[in-house]
Design a protein around this nucleic acid. Structure first.
Length: 294
DNA sequence: TGGAAGCCTGGTGT
DNA sequence: AACACCAGGCTTC
């Protein structure tokens, strides 16, 4: 507990979270390393979050006090209510997940804003993390309200805002062919053809079908949004990395198409899917970067 | 119903 | 430094 005599500025949340892997590990593209922690915006508030022993410390970026509703927002965003320890003990001896769970015990699946998350993963199509961060950052700084003193302290623009920007302007920001899809999604949401809030209450398959009905949203993008924003833990996004992991460690048939591998994995892992996927992704991605392979 | 080409443009490696 | 080649996918043919 910090106390400087006059104001209570920061908040300490007792939870062990692997911040780099969670905030900068491919789920969200809105966090930037700063001062040994991460700086980013949740909703309309900019935060600086750092790791401590079995805890995270939350600070504002402008000296304003962190209040109980800030803490609630961060706990919700990090989905600290999920029983990660239970998941870890269920898979402790698992061939693919065991090593990943002991190497990175604190990776969380985020509960992001649905619209922001959906747009980010539309932008992820045929791209890479630095570029996705660039694109999403450009959208925020260009069209989102400024919510802090830093250049990147911008809220993510809502659908109405992006719809009025239009495809051409989004292309101008460097989104490339994804601009058309972001613009189309923005129109669908702002015109009420797609009600994102209503997807929370729908079963996984139905929510997924609703998302896929939009142009530029296929299985992978839909599953990412469902897992990282809509709390659908049976979503199992399959990309190159995860596909390779499923083949290498679980004997998934090598010739199966990505869609078939996805349903194979959903059947096998059920509501553990999202966390399984994230741990496999992390392990596969980081081990591929090691200079030597075991 | 399966498979391959094309899409924008910044990142990555040489 | 410049220049290929490629990328966490989707649509179309």
């Amino acid at each position: 507990m910090d106390h400087d005599g006059t104001h209570h500025l920061t908040a300490t949340i007792a939870a062990s979270v692997d911040l780099p892997s969670t905030l900068d590990g491919g789920q969200s593209f809105r966090w930037w390393g700063e001062a040994g922690g991460f700086r980013g915006v949740i909703g309309r508030r900019a935060y600086l979050i750092k790791s401590a022993v079995d805890a995270i410390v939350v600070d504002s970026v402008d000296g304003s006090p962190i209040r109980p509703n800030d803490v609630a927002a961060i706990e919700r965003y990090l989905a600290l209510d999920y029983d990660l320890k239970g998941f870890a003990s269920r898979f402790a001896k698992d061939r693919g997940l065991g090593p990943a769970l002991s190497a990175w015990p604190g990776i969380r699946i985020l509960r992001q804003d649905p619209w922001e998350c959906l747009v980010a993963f539309i932008c992820s199509s045929c791209s890479n993390i630095p570029r996705i961060k660039l694109n999403v950052g450009s959208l925020a700084t260009t069209y989102g309200d400024k919510v802090g003193p830093g250049a990147r302290d911008h809220a993510f623009p809502n659908a109405v805002r992006l719809a009025s920007a239009g495809e051409l302007a989004l292309r101008g920001l460097g989104l490339g062919f994804r601009a058309r899809y972001v613009a189309a999604a923005a129109e669908a949401v702002s015109e009420g053809r797609l009600d994102l809030e209503s997807l929370y209450a729908l079963p996984y398959e139905e929510a997924r079908d609703r998302l896929i009905s939009l142009d530029g949203i296929g299985e992978k993008v839909a599953d990412c949004a469902l897992a990282f924003a809509f709390d659908k833990r049976e979503a199992f996004p399959i990309d190159r990395w995860v596909r390779r992991a499923l083949i290498e460690w679980y004997g998934a048939p090598e010739r199966l198409s990505p869609e078939k591998v996805a349903s194979w994995a959903r059947e096998r892992f059920g509501t553990d899917g999202a966390y399984v996927q994230q741990y496999l992704f992390h392990r596969q991605r980081l081990s591929a970067r090691l200079p030597t392979r075991a």
